[in-house]
């Protein structure tokens, strides 16, 4: 599970290539949130998740719940990198009968623990997984990735309150704080005010990092695995850039849910070092 920072960065780079390829090929999908989350996913899967790609349904595995399930290309890319699915499978993204459904789906894709697509649901599901682990007296963990726009769903706070009440120290959330949602910047849609204070007030361990700095990500994952209050759930607030890594997608709300055209695709491949300019 040990990887150098450079190795993790290379995994993330390769995943970015796949993300852009998937969305370009399908001419649909969500590149922005996939690119903002991918450094976090790469580090989490490559160094922390206790899973068995050859036995994806191993009952005592750590669970990963991508609550922001539209950012599925990011998850498919890391699942392929880890060997849960093949790189050939990535071509099935949004294709009839394909394992890579538009939103991640546990019934379709090996390694996916939650059928997402409706925001505000994953944290509750993760609480159920964490509760089950405790009943089993297992030390497996439930990791949940949520988005910042998603926090506008009231049910997120139902779950936040309940998880702290039940002292689910095995529930670990990563917030992909990319500041953009479907229609616009989050601050325009619904002001967020003091996000860390909100989670602290709900009884959570809280840490903030730069979600694209691999050193900080590793420190953040250390925090998630061993928070100050081990009886409390934890949230890592990762400040990220929507579309991070592709210049014209960065901080651009129009790439929340839009595919690059051929010219833009070529540009992305140059920026990711796949082809020469």
């Amino acid at each position: 599970m040990s990887k150098t920072i450079e190795e993790l960065e290379e995994i993330a780079r390769k995943c970015r290539v796949e993300i852009v390829k998937m969305v370009h090929r399908a001419q649909a999908g969500h590149p922005g949130g996939s690119l903002s989350e991918i450094d976090l996913l790469a580090a989490l899967y490559a160094t922390r998740m206790r899973v068995r790609p050859s036995d994806p349904n191993w009952s005592d595995r750590d669970r990963f719940i991508l609550s922001k399930g539209h950012a599925s290309p990011g998850m498919y890319a890391i699942l392929a990198e880890m060997g849960f699915i093949s790189h050939e499978d990535l071509k099935s993204y949004r294709v009839l009968g394909g394992v890579c459904q538009g939103h991640v789906d546990m019934k379709w894709c090996p390694g996916v623990d939650f059928s997402a697509g409706s925001l505000g649901m994953g944290l509750s599901f993760g609480m159920g997984c964490a509760s089950a682990a405790r009943l089993d007296k297992s030390d497996r963990r439930a990791f949940v990735m949520i988005g910042d726009g998603e926090m506008q769903e009231g049910s997120v706070w139902e779950a936040a309150m309940a998880a702290a009440h039940h002292e689910l120290g095995n529930l670990k959330v990563i917030l992909d704080r990319n500041r953009i949602q479907n229609d616009d910047f989050c601050e325009e849609q619904m002001r967020m005010f003091d996000i860390p204070a909100k989670w602290k007030a709900f009884g959570w361990n809280v840490k903030e990092i730069d979600g694209h700095n691999m050193n900080e990500i590793m420190e953040g994952l250390d925090f998630l695995e061993a928070p100050e209050n081990s009886n409390g759930p934890s949230i890592l607030i990762a400040h990220t850039i929507k579309g991070g890594g592709i210049s014209y997608m960065e901080n651009n709300p129009s790439f929340h849910g839009a595919a690059p055209n051929d010219e833009q695709f070529h540009q992305a491949m140059i920026e990711l070092g796949e082809v020469e300019a």
């Binding site: 009952s59 669970r63 546990m106 623990d113 939650f114 649901m121 509750s124 599901f125 993760g126 609480m127 159920g128 997984c129 964490a130 509760s131 089950a132 682990a133 089993d136 439930a142 049910s155 779950a159 309940a162």
Partner: peptide, 10 residues
């Protein structure tokens, strides 16, 4: 959904 997570965990 807590129920769903529990059901998915056996």
């Amino acid at each position: 959904l807590v129920g769903a997570g529990l059901a998915a965990s056996g």
